[in-house]
């Protein structure tokens, strides 16, 4: 396990060096600027300079924003807007998916199960940005209940009504996947010996389902949630563009279009870092929840 973290962390900063390579490829008018930015040095040298700077908390200067704005604080500002969105979506997905998955898993192939499976398949197959567009179409334009986009009314700060649609669009995607895993987890668990034992010793159905079955079915779901967290992060990049939500995703897209590599590499690195950490936490949680698994 330590090897995985080591290699992941080792790899993460190595990759922006490749991003710089991309800059080398489009060097026409940048000749003078490249010299100023130290890009005329050999790639490995640049890489070490960059790593050295990162460890001192200096993420370089963006080419699009003014020099007095350090990239680090710019990106941090955007992260503060993206994180509430993904966390709400995550909670929404989990809260909806777990009961749905349990209901479906208890009565496989019944009409409730088919109905739940249909919902979860919709969540899996419909791209979150399209779901977002459909939500805008229906709730914002047809019904005029909620605003179509942005962080808040123009000129003022954040407003909750702007937050609702993007988090639902993201949550639906996650819900689909988790429901599915919860269902199959319940199916596996319900046919196991200890559930039969629990029934046999006369425990009420409710207790068997909640105390014995759900707890064990959740085990397999924990790791899946962590893996799907990656899809959630990716989805938030696109969904932010749909809703013009001024977070990391919108910033990344704009930075790519502007070929602003210091911002691109920092955002990609930060998101991957979050992703790796979440997966690490899931692994630890898994060992904690299931005492049979012991890490050396």
């Amino acid at each position: 396990m330590s090897i995985i973290i080591f290699s992941a962390v080792r790899f993460a900063p190595g990759d922006p060096a490749v991003t710089r390579l991309g800059m080398e490829a489009t060097k026409e008018a940048l000749e003078q600027e490249r010299k100023d930015m130290g890009l005329d040095k050999p790639i490995p040298v640049q890489y070490f300079i960059w790593v050295n700077k990162v460890f001192r908390g200096d993420f370089g200067v963006s080419s699009a924003y003014a020099a007095e704005h350090p990239v680090g604080s710019l990106v941090l500002e955007k992260f503060k807007r993206t994180i509430p969105l993904t966390v709400t979506a995550l909670l929404l997905g989990v809260i909806l998916a777990i009961p749905l998955g349990i209901i479906a898993g208890l009565k496989p192939f019944s009409w409730t199960d088919n109905f739940v499976s249909a919902i979860s398949l919709f969540g899996i197959a419909a791209p979150s940005f399209w779901v977002g567009l459909m939500l805008i179409l229906f709730f914002a334009i047809r019904l005029d209940w909620l605003p179509t986009s942005g962080y808040g009314p123009i000129g003022s700060g954040f407003k909750v009504s702007h937050f609702v649609l993007p988090s639902i669009a993201l949550g639906i995607q996650l819900m689909g996947a988790i429901t599915r895993y919860m269902r199959s987890g319940m199916l596996d668990v319900m046919s196991s010996d200890y559930i039969r034992t629990a029934h046999a010793k006369g425990l009420p159905y409710r207790t068997v389902v909640i105390r014995h079955a759900m707890k064990n079915a959740l085990l397999s779901v924990v790791t899946v949630i962590a893996l799907d967290f990656g899809a959630l992060l990716g989805g938030s990049l696109v969904t932010e563009t749909v809703f013009r939500w001024p977070g990391v995703g919108l910033m990344l897209v704009e930075a790519i279009q502007a070929r602003d590599y210091s911002i691109v590499q920092l955002i990609v690195m930060a998101i991957s870092f979050v992703y790796v950490i979440v997966n690490l936490l899931a692994d630890i949680a898994y060992g904690y929840l299931d005492p049979r698994i012991r890490y050396e």
Binding site: A8, L233, V268
Partner: peptide, 12 residues
């Protein structure tokens, strides 16, 4: 190392 990135982010 490839897995350390969410697939959409890697593609982007």
């Amino acid at each position: 190392a490839i897995l350390a990135f969410p697939s959409l982010l890697l593609a982007i």
